[in-house]
Design a protein around this nucleic acid. Structure first.
Lengths: 212, 212
DNA sequence: GTCTATACAGGGATAGAC
DNA sequence: GTCTATCCCTGTATAGAC
């Protein structure tokens, strides 16, 4: 028996199977037959619980994003210096997208799709939540003079998120590049990237980035 | 008549239509019927020129990437200071991916479709070419002491490319974010991002980033 | 709620005339 | 090289029994 997620009700199994398959292959490449088989249910039963394929996809995205957003809420919450918070946020964010590979892929797919709008809202929700929290932290730091005034917090937030997303997206590719040593180590990558960013956004004349 | 690309031979029209549709909607979402209609040719004629759908897709990717790589060769070629070259490279790269939206989307899609699937090679080719050129420039700068020694050039290259790709990928989303002012202006975005990166990778104690 | 069986549309791909 | 017509399969979705 497929040991992974047995003993759960059909709806849960269907959602889990659908999430995995949609994330891996994309909406159009996945048939209801495949989902039914992976979920250990009949195709007709899926249609009993979800009106059609689109609605199933939407349900997958909805539960996945809700779960993801819940985790994001906790990023960078704790106390600590401005730099520590930022560094921690970046590390936690990278960790999060790697741990939730399926959701991340779903969202990236959705961002790429120009066609049916389907669940764009959820992609925007997750992306926007991360973005908003980061901007908040950065604004606060700016008020307290802990980063340059002549800088757009939104820009920095986007750089941090983007740097992490790039790692996620391209890690399998640059794993084969001779120049790259950090492919297998997100921690190293995150630390190095944030070292550059932090130094880049320091107020002019500051010099206290190292602490080890 | 569809004014865009008329008067060309069938193969060109087919490739152009296929590139547009694949980029927009993804491989599985596009039917040969749709391509035939968009290209103003019959489905049978497509199959006359391309063995099957996969081969057509591969041909699209191949020509698109070849064209793209040709342009990349010219990035950052000219003389100028290290910082100027880097800045120029970043700006040209962002410009390039925006101008070649279809190719960029094709590659991102291909990257996402991790499976035992198609032309991963092309993604590696384009990505790798950009990456390699950037690392080269950075190494050179490092030798001449124009950027920190304790930094991995590959890391910086990835940050620059990733920052640009993120702009491309998410610009439609953060266009609606109140915090973002640079959504419509890649030039502004690129300048601001590189300002941070350049300051972040300067040798300790340098202070000559501004020149205007 | 869950199944088997089935309807029916659209997909990729081919035959064969011109 | 290009077309029309057609094949056959797989996809989504439904009917109806249990």
């Amino acid at each position: 028996m497929p040991a992974e997620l047995i003993e759960r009700d059909a709806v849960s199994r269907i959602l889990a199977a659908a999430r995995e398959l949609f994330a891996e292959h994309g909406f159009d490449a996945v048939s209801m037959n495949a989902i039914a088989e992976a979920a250990g249910a009949s195709k007709a039963n899926i249609f009993h619980h979800f009106k059609n394929k689109d609605e199933l996809y939407l349900a997958v995205l909805k539960t996945a994003c809700a779960n993801s957003c819940e985790q994001i809420e906790r990023f960078g919450q704790d106390e600590g210096s401005f730099e520590q918070r930022l560094e921690r946020y970046a590390a936690e964010h990278l960790n999060h997208i790697l741990d939730n590979e399926q959701v991340t892929r779903l969202i990236q797919r959705d961002l790429l799709d120009n066609g049916p709008r389907r669940g764009r809202q959820f992609a925007e929700q997750v992306f926007g939540q991360n973005f908003g929290r980061l901007v908040e932290i950065l604004r606060e730091g700016q008020l307290r003079g802990e980063l340059r005034q002549d800088i757009d917090p939104a820009q920095v937030a986007l750089m941090i998120i983007g740097t992490n997303l790039t790692f996620f997206q391209a890690r399998e590719v640059f794993r084969h590049f001779p120049d790259v040593n950090f492919a297998g180590s997100p921690e190293t990558y995150s630390r190095m990237a944030m070292d550059i960013v932090l130094r880049g956004i320091q107020p002019h004349g500051t010099r206290n980035a190292e602490k080890e």
